[in-house]
Write a protein that binds this DNA or RNA. Structure first.
Lengths: 150, 150
DNA sequence: TTTTATCGTTGACAGATGTAAACACAAGCG
DNA sequence: CGCTTGTGTTTACATCTGTCAACGATAAAA
């Protein structure tokens, strides 16, 4: 399992989810499983598998004339990567509110919630009163008229 | 301010942040401000501005021979959109842990934290013991060997 | 062993993205 | 009134992505 920075496109991500969930799997199984969610032709799926192998997101083991595909990148690392990637684009000041929205809209287990509560309780003590906007570089400051949390 | 579904590419997003922060602005100012962060040529920035206008993410007001650009899409909506988009790709079962990581790595204000604490406290009561994986369609169940939270 | 069903490989193609040079044009300068 | 300068417009182009059809090789079936 590598942790290298490999970018997965949305379509490729769909394939990876199947493989992360099933472990080792043949292209045929992938095709069958995907077809429950996406309306992709076999060709499309084969292409995606091939591209994933090429970018070393998947490994193959030849068994007879067919391949058994398995993930070469760790699911959690991949998840960290896309979420970090997404969050890195956001205005620093807005992230807190967005996270609040996400925890509102996401189904969370009791355990998840308790974990977060512990983290938050710990953070509260040293939390700043306000997080500054970082949308402009250097000395350029936000125009308070626009750069405000609502 | 529209709320229509407009996809912003990472490069376009960079431009939008400037404009959301500064309000109305000329291409020239955008160019100056971007150059503090990115090493893009003027041409590149002009192209991005034009594409953003084309996809109605920006509006223009002609003043003399120059344009004043302003956002046509709301920053918060755009933020919601990309985060939702990203989260929709993840395994349902993994979202909680990922959110916990995010709140750990994000700088949060006291206010943000308190908001989240309130949301979590409320959610805890009705929270499920476990959130199921939704990576496979229909009756296909996760192979417990692979589909487990660690 | 001839036919057929399976897989994987090639080649394609339109549209999106990142990047940018070259060009056109109006306004102010000399 | 040409010339320079600041702005917007065109054109370009290599990649990346989403989607496939067609082709080739080989195991399985007849």
């Amino acid at each position: 399992m590598t942790t290298a920075k490999i970018n997965l496109t949305p379509a490729e991500w769909e394939i990876m989810r199947i493989i992360w969930t099933k472990g080792a799997i043949t292209s045929n199984e992938v095709i069958t499983l995907i077809q429950g969610k996406k309306n992709w032709s076999e060709s499309t799926i084969k292409t995606l598998l091939r591209r994933l192998v090429k970018k070393t997101a998947l490994a193959t083991a030849k068994v007879g004339r067919k391949f058994i595909y398995s993930a070469e990148i760790d699911e959690n690392s991949a998840i960290d990567q896309i979420t970090d990637d997404t969050f890195s684009r956001l205005c620093e000041m807005k992230k807190g509110a967005e996270l609040a929205k996400l925890i509102t809209s996401t189904t969370l287990s009791k355990h998840d919630i308790q974990t977060m509560q512990a983290i938050l309780a710990k953070k509260l003590a040293t939390a700043p009163e306000k997080v500054a906007c970082n949308c402009l570089s250097g000395e350029n400051q936000c125009d308070p008229k626009y750069c405000e949390v609502e």
